[in-house]
């Protein structure tokens, strides 16, 4: 099974990287974009592993980050 883990800074935590991107947008002509937040994407293939535990113990620090596990039925990328 193909798995994507999305990890993002928890709401309310200052994300300076997101802010820097947001501030650069008007100069490039992109208007009306707000609340840019930058996280991390981990792709892996796994069968039967305890993905929740993997995320809580290693992939995310749940004090500062939220994670979301997206499972795909087969190993092909639907996108």
């Amino acid at each position: 099974m193909k798995v994507r883990v999305l990890i993002r800074p928890k709401p309310g935590i200052l994300d300076p990287q997101g802010k820097a991107i947001e501030r650069a947008l008007p100069a490039l002509g992109f208007e009306g974009i707000e609340e840019v937040r930058v996280g991390r994407l981990v792709e892996l293939e796994a069968d039967g592993a305890d993905l929740e535990a993997l995320c809580e113990r290693l992939l995310a620090n749940t004090l500062i980050e939220d994670f979301e596990i997206v499972r795909f039925a087969d190993r092909t990328d639907p996108a």
Partner: peptide, 10 residues
């Protein structure tokens, strides 16, 4: 306790 995040000034 706690965590260390990237500096505000990047």
């Amino acid at each position: 306790p706690g965590a260390l995040l990237p500096n505000t000034g990047l």
